[in-house]
Simulated scan of single mutants.
Amino acid sequence: MNQFIFALKTLGLFTVTAIAEIAGCYLPYLWLRKGGSVFLLLPAALSLMIFVYLLTLHPAASGRVYAAYGGIYVSVAVLWLWQVDGIMPDRWDMIGSLISLTGMAVILLAPRAS
């Protein structure tokens, strides 16, 4: 049960971290490519600062943790595509997200020697 609770907390932290990272990169994109206001850079910078702070809360700063985070990042990016960009993910987006989440679960939940 402890591993399940750890996994849920980690999943939530990864999701919030991914949102902060994507928002921090998306807002400058709107400014540079879509003619948005230069003032979009202020919330972008704040979002990236939050992202960096959230990285310090992850269970460990290791390749394994960041690899697991990558699975969540891919899925959140596909949801962002749908919810923010208004582009409905196709089956390949969904399959790719499921593969990423499966890989994340294997990395995060694999039994390891303490």
Rank of each mutant, 00 (worst) to 15 (best):
L55S: 00
L81G: 11
F4Q: 08
L11E: 12
P111D: 12
L8E: 00
G35N: 07
W82A: 14
R112I: 11
I22N: 05
Y53F: 14
T17M: 00
G71L: 02
L48T: 04
L8A: 11
G12E: 05
I95R: 08
P28I: 03
V65A: 06
A45W: 13
F51W: 13
W31Q: 10
A105Y: 13
S37E: 06
V16P: 02
F6G: 01
P89D: 12
K34I: 02
V52W: 04
Y26R: 09
L81A: 08
C25L: 05
G24C: 01
A113H: 13
Y29W: 15
H58A: 02
V38R: 09
L109P: 01
Y73C: 03
A44H: 05
R33A: 13
I19T: 12
L32R: 13
L48W: 10
R112A: 15
M49Q: 06
Q83W: 14
F14Q: 00
F39Y: 15
M94D: 05
G36F: 10
D90C: 02
S100E: 11
L42K: 06
Y29A: 11
Q83V: 15
M1A: 15
G103Y: 07
L8D: 03
R64Y: 08
S37H: 05
P59I: 00
S97D: 08
A77E: 03
L30W: 08
V78A: 12
F39V: 09
M104D: 04
F4C: 01
S100I: 02
M104V: 06
R112N: 06
F4T: 08
W82D: 14
L81N: 08
V106S: 06
T15F: 13
G24W: 11
V38L: 11
I72F: 13
T17R: 00
I5C: 00
I95Y: 03
L79H: 00
S62A: 06
A45I: 15
L55P: 02
Y29R: 04
I50W: 04
A77F: 07
Y53V: 07
A110S: 14
G71N: 01
V38A: 14
G24L: 03
L108Q: 12
A113M: 06
A18T: 14
S75E: 12
A18W: 09
G24D: 09
M94T: 14
L8R: 06
F14C: 00
L13W: 06
L101P: 05
V84A: 04
L54W: 02
S75T: 15
M94Q: 10
P111Y: 12
S114D: 09
I99R: 07
P111E: 13
K34H: 14
Y26S: 10
P59V: 05
W80V: 12
V84F: 03
